[in-house]
Amino acid sequence: MKIHALADGQRRPLGFILTGGEALDYSAVPDRLAIPVGKPRLFLADKGYDGNFLREELLIHGIRPVIPPKANWKRPPAYDLRAYKDLNRIERMFNRLKQFRRVATRYDKTRKSFSAFLAMAAAKIWLPSFVNRT
Rank of each mutant, 00 (worst) to 15 (best):
residue 21 G to R: 04
residue 56 E to H: 13
residue 65 P to D: 00
residue 27 S to F: 08
residue 81 L to V: 14
residue 116 A to I: 09
residue 4 H to C: 10
residue 29 V to D: 00
residue 125 I to G: 04
residue 81 L to H: 14
residue 9 G to A: 15
residue 33 L to R: 09
residue 23 A to C: 06
residue 71 A to N: 14
residue 6 L to D: 03
residue 65 P to T: 03
residue 15 G to M: 04
residue 78 A to N: 08
residue 96 R to K: 15
residue 118 L to D: 04
residue 115 S to I: 11
residue 13 P to I: 01
residue 127 L to M: 13
residue 130 F to M: 10
residue 92 R to N: 13
residue 18 L to G: 01
residue 42 L to G: 02
residue 114 F to Y: 15
residue 108 D to C: 10
residue 18 L to I: 14
residue 112 K to H: 15
residue 43 F to P: 00
residue 76 P to M: 07
residue 22 E to Y: 06
residue 40 P to W: 02
residue 30 P to I: 00
residue 55 R to Q: 06
residue 4 H to Y: 04
residue 134 T to S: 13
residue 117 F to I: 13
residue 121 A to W: 06
residue 84 Y to E: 03
residue 132 N to F: 13
residue 102 R to I: 11
residue 70 K to S: 09
residue 20 G to C: 11
residue 33 L to G: 07
residue 100 F to P: 04
residue 81 L to N: 10
residue 76 P to R: 07
residue 76 P to W: 04
residue 75 R to N: 14
residue 117 F to H: 15
residue 131 V to K: 10
residue 31 D to G: 04
residue 117 F to K: 09
residue 27 S to I: 07
residue 62 G to M: 01
residue 47 K to L: 05
residue 57 E to K: 06
residue 111 R to T: 05
residue 119 A to N: 12
residue 18 L to M: 14
residue 17 I to V: 15
residue 129 S to M: 10
residue 124 K to N: 11
residue 57 E to F: 07
residue 84 Y to K: 01
residue 44 L to Q: 02
residue 99 Q to S: 11
residue 108 D to Q: 14
residue 74 K to R: 15
residue 35 I to Q: 05
residue 5 A to C: 07
residue 100 F to E: 01
residue 105 T to L: 09
residue 30 P to T: 01
residue 26 Y to W: 06
residue 32 R to E: 10
residue 40 P to G: 06
residue 123 A to W: 08
residue 81 L to Y: 10
residue 10 Q to K: 14
residue 115 S to A: 14
residue 129 S to P: 00
residue 3 I to S: 10
residue 58 L to K: 06
residue 54 L to Q: 05
residue 87 L to T: 05
residue 122 A to R: 06
residue 84 Y to S: 03
residue 24 L to V: 01
